[in-house]
Amino acid sequence: MNGRDRRWAELARELEFSELPELRQRAEGWRAGLTGLSTLLAVLVVLKGRDDLAGLPTAARNTAMGLIAGAFVLLVIGSVLATRAAHGSPRDSDKQMLITGHALRQWTEKEVKGVSRTLRRAALCCLLGVLLAGGGVGVAWSTTEKAKDHLVRVGTPTGELCGELVRAGRGGYVVKVEEGGEGDAPRQVTLPARDVDSVAPVASCDAPG
């Protein structure tokens, strides 16, 4: 035990000479952690800014946004925990103690336990966060309606009709028309050929032409 006690006492004695580098390292650690958080935030803002989510049905959009928001919260918590584990909590810096070899040894043993616990929690948060983010992206991806091709504006004596051209032939034109409500299923309209005055391809049915 003598040799080990001696080593701890030596460490305690040398601690005061490592003051400045330790301080800088800790500050550096927090800086890096916060930079990581900012990056995360930026990514979220970019994701939110995209119109992708707007094209989803309401329920799917809410689910996807909920999952991504949950993922973000978990990742933020995970980052803070990981930074704490790596560099200590800034709050601890108020707790002064008399640094003897014995005290340093006890502190270190306690710290090792605390750091392992914090790291486990950080890892769990990051894992769950990634799963949630993946789930959110998955929901968004699987429910995003593919961009409609073959959109046509059909002129008839009674008015105009805009929608996806399903087929055209002797039987007339079959056009799939989106109704106003987001959740509503598209309606297929069959127009006899004699009722069709004009057919023009369009990029979108949104703007009335």
Partner: peptide
């Protein structure tokens, strides 16, 4: 010395 083992 009084101090903080984590920070110097």
């Amino acid at each position: 010395r009084y101090g903080l083992p984590g920070t110097g």
